[in-house]
């Protein structure tokens, strides 16, 4: 093995969906959107692309970068700011729940992490695990895309093979979106359709959200 392969191997390990983080149980609105026809299972790349542009890029990317960059009191303040930037109560709780699950996992493998909002905890975890910020952002964006695709598969709405076409088609867009934010950028998402889907009550649901 060449030492050069280490960053790639680390990123692959941390981005692997088998890494226990609880995220498999979240659909971030896709379950309701598929049930109610707002998301089209034949064009999952459309839904995932909109989430990446409207939610991940302006919100998760910025929140994650703060978690990656900051320490101590600055980190706690950043988590409070992210908390205040999620106005919908359910979504706020779900972000905390996802953060707590990742933190529980990290602590058990010896990475000291406090609970917090999912992207902030993720950013800190990836830095403490040795990833650069650009790699951390790529891991996070890919995780969101793959998480949504896998939720659609487990909901039985798309094939596990067919959905790979959507994901492959999205890779160039994901690469273009993973630019590190400026330190003074603030998280603010604009994803109204999935925001509403996240708040819709669903008679029977399989996912946390």
């Amino acid at each position: 093995m060449t030492p050069d392969a280490l960053p790639l191997l680390t990123a692959m390990h941390l981005a692997d969906s088998s890494f226990p983080s609880g995220l498999f149980a979240f659909s971030w609105g896709l379950e309701a959107a598929l049930a109610e026809g707002q998301a089209d299972p034949r064009d999952l790349a459309g839904w995932i692309g909109a989430e990446l542009h409207g939610r991940w890029h302006p919100f998760d990317r910025v929140a994650l970068a703060g978690g990656w960059r900051l320490d101590g009191a600055g980190l706690a303040d950043w988590d409070d700011l992210v908390d205040a930037s999620i106005p919908a109560e359910m979504q706020r709780q779900q972000s905390l729940q996802a953060g707590a699950a990742l933190a529980a996992s990290a602590r058990r493998i010896g990475v000291a992490l406090d609970d917090g909002h999912a992207p902030v905890v993720h950013g800190r975890f990836l830095r403490l695990s040795g990833l650069t910020l650009p790699d951390a952002l790529a891991v996070s964006a890919m995780g969101m895309a793959r998480g949504l695709a896998s939720a659609a598969v487990r909901l039985g709405r798309v094939g596990a093979v067919a959905v790979q076409r959507d994901l492959l088609a999205l890779l160039p867009r994901i690469a273009a979106l993973t630019d590190p934010p400026r330190p003074d950028d603030l998280p603010a998402s604009f994803a109204p359709i999935s925001d509403i889907a996240l708040m819709r009550p669903l008679a029977s649901r399989l996912f946390v959200n």
Partner: peptide
């Protein structure tokens, strides 16, 4: 209550972190 994301298996074996976090809480 912990939701299992359509995978009752996964949430107790491959990725038990939601349950671990709930128990810690």
């Amino acid at each position: 209550a912990v939701q299992a994301g359509a995978c009752p298996h996964t949430v107790i074996r491959e990725d038990p972190t939601l349950n671990i976090a709930a128990a810690d809480r």
